[in-house]
Every structure is written in C-alpha cells, then in structure tokens.
Design a protein around this nucleic acid. Sequence first.
DNA 1: ATGGTAGAGGATCTA
Length: 258
Amino acid sequence: MRVATWNVNSLNARMPRFVAWLKEAEPDVVCIQETKLKQDAFPYLELELLGYESAHFGQGQWNGVAVISKVGLKDPIMGIEGGRPESEEARAITVDCNGVGIMSIYVPNGRAVDSDHYRYKLRWLASLRRHLDEHFKPTDKLIVAGDFNIAPEDKDVWSPEALLGSTHVSEPEREALRELKGWGLVDSFRHFYDQDGLYTWWDHRGGAFHKRQGLRIDYLLVTEPLETLLNWALVDRNARKGERPSDHAPVIIDFSMP
DNA sequence: ATGGTAGAGGATCTA
C-alpha cells in the first residue's frame, strides 16, 4: 500500500500536474492539503475516473484538506473538534482506508512567534492529540500525514541561523510535535534517512528551491504496527520542478499489508 | 536593503 501527502497550494491551480503525478507515482492513497476549494467544488468525478474515491473537508479561499483512495474509503470525520466542523477551519479530515486510519492535516502556520496565530497553532496541536485519544489507539494502524508547519530538528532546515526566532523551528512548536509523537507515532521518513539537507518545502520567493533553501515540514507519522511494515519512503523533488509547481513536494511511503 | 512569488479574488490576505 502506497500512501502520499502533498500540500498542493490550490488543487484548482495544480490539477493538471496533480493528475499527471497520480499516473506516475501510482499512490493508493493521497492526503491533500490546501485544496482552497469549497466543499462541493472538489473534483470528485475527475478523480473517480482515475479510480479514486474522495473525502473532502473544504472551506473555500483558504485551507481545505482531503483524502483520495483506490483501496476503499469510509467513515469520514471532518475536523478535530468533536463533530462541529462548521465552527472550525478546514484543517483535518480522518478516514478509514482498507483498515488503516488515515488523517490529512494542515497545521496552522503560526505566522510569528508569540502571535495570536502562533498560540492557535499550539492549541490546535493539543486538540489533534485529543482527537487521536478519542478515535484511535497506538496499537491501531494509523497514519497522520500532512503539512505540519514544524521542522522537527535543526537538520530539517537549510540554515538554523537564518531561521532563528522564526516559527516552524521554535522550541514550543517542536515540543508540541514531540508530545504528539509521544502518543505513539514515528516519522516514517526518518525511519529510513538520518541525514540533513532533505526538505519538502521551498519558498516560491527568491529562487529558494534552486538555492536548496528548504524545510522538512511535511511528513507521514505512523503507529508502530505500520512502522514494522514499511518498505521505503521518499520526497518527490521532481514535483517541485518545472511549470507552476506547488511550493511543497509530495512525500510517499510504501508498506506491505499482511 | 523587510526584498521576493504564488494563489484567491477582485483590495488585500495568506503563506
């Protein structure tokens, strides 16, 4: 089973590349972030023709998360606030794909350390952990995938010095991520790779991609029963090249289902 | 030197 996560930064703008990438990467499940689409504007039919069922938690101008699956998709839960999705931003959706719990999440950016939005980011991460407690056990097969907007360690950023005092690298954010992992999740990419210089996001501005100035802020956290089944993981940097790329590259994992 | 680009939407806001 092959599961990917990709912040597409507008599915409308990315659809031509997204469809081409599906045919090339052949994922069974994709966790999408930043669809920037209203609930009913999701391209359900076009993706169905490619063999995917879809569940979308849309908002419109901003945010929006979805899961698409070739291996079954049921029991969607919109949001993490306990059944009142109309009162929260469209940043999380939970589904079951072939007996594997799948979450597509888009963690708030944080904007500036100690801002209201930064405090919202930390609260949101605490809510996510409560959502896990409510719906899953660490012994379940579960993948929490998406744009976390946190670089876990200094080796996940191109220059810790340049980013000193910024969001994405602050200690409270990293501590909140460790708390989440402490529930019973491991970073599937780090299961295979230990080195620095491996990123998933590069700013559109200033030619950051070509200067290798990136951050690793997109990942797939998995429970132990899935970690033992992992075959490989990669960042698809090719998707960040060429015409009209998202500022994020997809991350893909592959594991053997018993 | 607080720059630069992309997307949504139709002036700025978000990232």
